[in-house]
Design a protein around this nucleic acid. Structure first.
Lengths: 209, 209, 209, 209
DNA sequence: CATGAATGAGCCTTCATTCAT
DNA sequence: AATGAATGAAGGCTCATTCAT
């Protein structure tokens, strides 16, 4: 009986995933509001009624998609641990990892970001649950690096936002279909790391002159 | 008679602006699809029917908002001209200017970006009309700077996207309500410029060690 | 002053006709309900507001068109007078005349008939003002012919309807675009007269056997 | 399972009929354009949305009503077969039958005819699908009768239109509410047959004199 | 649990009519 | 008298949600 329940739970979870995946695809294609439950159902291969056995309403689908994104972020953050020594190495590896994970989940980002931009409630929830914790941890790390003298003394909070934002901005460019970014995503993290670490300007000299 | 026509044209243009402003506010608040023409009309202080005397349909409102953004971008680009000498000075001034303009038009960006993320047609039009031309000009500029030896030799196309993306990403963070970015936008361009020019890493070397 | 008034009246009448003609064309093309006052105005070469200086509302346009048809019928009826002698000659001439007049006004019939079929009020008014008087006069004429022994004794009221109906039916066929009827309308009155006077059946013959 | 499907199909067909009947009544009463889907729904005893589960749009209701009429005509035409001998008997029986069928479906005719008069597309479809085939068959029949010497040599195409038109005209008179025709429809076919077969004119000849 | 027909609230849009110029 | 911008009521249609099977 317990095992039957276990199997059933697995089936239920699988069905949920199936519907959620379909919803992500349809929402990404049409946008949340323009997407219809009918099309989500067709894409998932179930009837419209079935969706309501797994989700309270259409909005709950969006929330569940957002939760997937939170999961992703949280897992990605685990990466930060145990990387105490080499700053440049850490930074580049971190960027690379984050960008890989983000790109894999880009369609989820697409849906969630599109809605967040025009939905204050969603936005606040995302900021509170995802961005703020991430920022706080990042800032601490950052501050520590400054204290260690590894990083140029700067406005840590804003620098943190610049780094985060530059990754986010590349993602957005990619989601908008920018061809260079979309086709060379893997290389982009290297260039981004290089710029953020060493800057554009050529060493040795001619600046300010 | 000519003046009457002139006055009339002004009134018509003003009415158009009035409706377009209202649409921008409502769309930014609710999102394009959730926004109703009724609410746009109320916000604009006209009747619903009047909207349709100035715009073909609801989608045309979105397109007109997008056109405002195109205008903005085009005017901002004029800035690039006549700045041939000091790279660092040019770059910082350019960033500052772009960021001011972008932030002033942030609600327009909010609406357009939200829709573009999930509307392929809009996206392609924006890429073709705004992003690609901007990128092309920027790349040429960039390339020239590299040739002049002012800028570290790098992957110019991707570096260009990184710079563009970092501005875009800060904007998105601000639009998402990130408090640091939103409240210190003016300072952000300085930090961004510093990072992009000189990098995070402290000079004189302990990297890799 | 009186003459100025006369000239003015003529201008007013001409403008009325202009609008009414435009309305007839547009209504005939789209149907009363689908036609818009805007299109009537454009077709008439006036502004929408002007229509309302000449007609109470859109329905009044329809009523005025119907009145044109009443006029037509009344004038056509004058024909009946002073034709007392030869039945066959009278009948054929009458048919020919009626059919010419009807065909000339077919677009008016098109509009009015289409609306009457689904508008009880209009229908009743038309029956009362046009059909019933016509029928009454026709029946009297008919009855007299029977009394004179010129016409086969028959059910005069129904025979009257059959004659009227056969003309009406040809008109409807023509309005529906039946090519034979539409292209050979002038010949149709002859064939109709022949059939109604002498019948299809060959004389001297094998009927009933 | 098969039977369940059968029952479901029957229910679906019944629901379709229910909506179509309601649409016919409402359209006949108000005209297609003035009729509202809301009123059709109320008349059918379903919700407005349900209409759209069975018909593409409001126009599809009209088309389906027209199809009912096509069906009717096609079934009525079957009558023509196997009636080879007595012309007068055939003709009278044919008229009687056609008129009964037409009168039974008069409200369908009302709706369709009203729209056809002012809708070229509908008109052409009806001419092509219904009138032209009917005319062709009728003409052949007619021609054969002439060849057999049963029918006075005449302009067969136009004579065919006269016969068809006279039935159509009586229908229109009836639809317009002409009391004699409406209340004595059954007798009308007899009078019509008599007139079309033998004509109005008294035999034994005072014609032309 | 799955289904999909039924529902009806609500949206975009049209258009007859008004009225200030 | 002519104009045409403004109005807002009303209609066709969509779609999230419910529920009987």
């Amino acid at each position: 009986m317990a095992e039957t329940g276990g199997v059933r739970d697995l089936l239920i979870a699988a069905r949920r995933e199936q519907i959620l995946g379909a919803a992500t695809r349809v929402f990404a294609d049409k946008g949340f509001s323009r997407a219809t439950t009918r099309e989500v159902a067709r894409e998932a291969g179930v009837s419209e009624g079935t969706i309501y056995n797994y989700f309270e309403d259409k909005e709950a689908l969006l929330m569940a998609i957002m939760d997937m994104l939170n999961e992703t972020e949280r897992r990605a953050d685990d990466f930060r641990e145990g990387l105490a020594t080499d700053f440049q190495g850490f930074f580049e590896a971190y960027l690379r990892h984050r960008m890989v994970v983000i790109w894999e989940n880009r369609e989820i980002f697409r849906v969630v970001m599109s809605e967040m931009l025009v939905n204050a409630g969603l936005r606040e929830r995302y900021m509170r649950e995802v961005v703020e914790p991430t920022m706080r941890i990042g800032e601490e790390n950052f501050q520590e690096r400054v204290r260690q003298g590894k990083v140029r003394p700067t406005d840590v909070p804003l620098a943190m936002r610049v780094v985060t934002g530059s990754v986010l901005g590349l993602l957005v460019l990619g989601l908008l279909g920018e061809k260079e970014v979309a086709s060379r995503w893997d290389e982009a993290s290297g260039v981004l790391g290089e710029l953020l670490l060493h800057g554009l300007e050529k060493m040795g000299g001619d600046q300010h002159a």
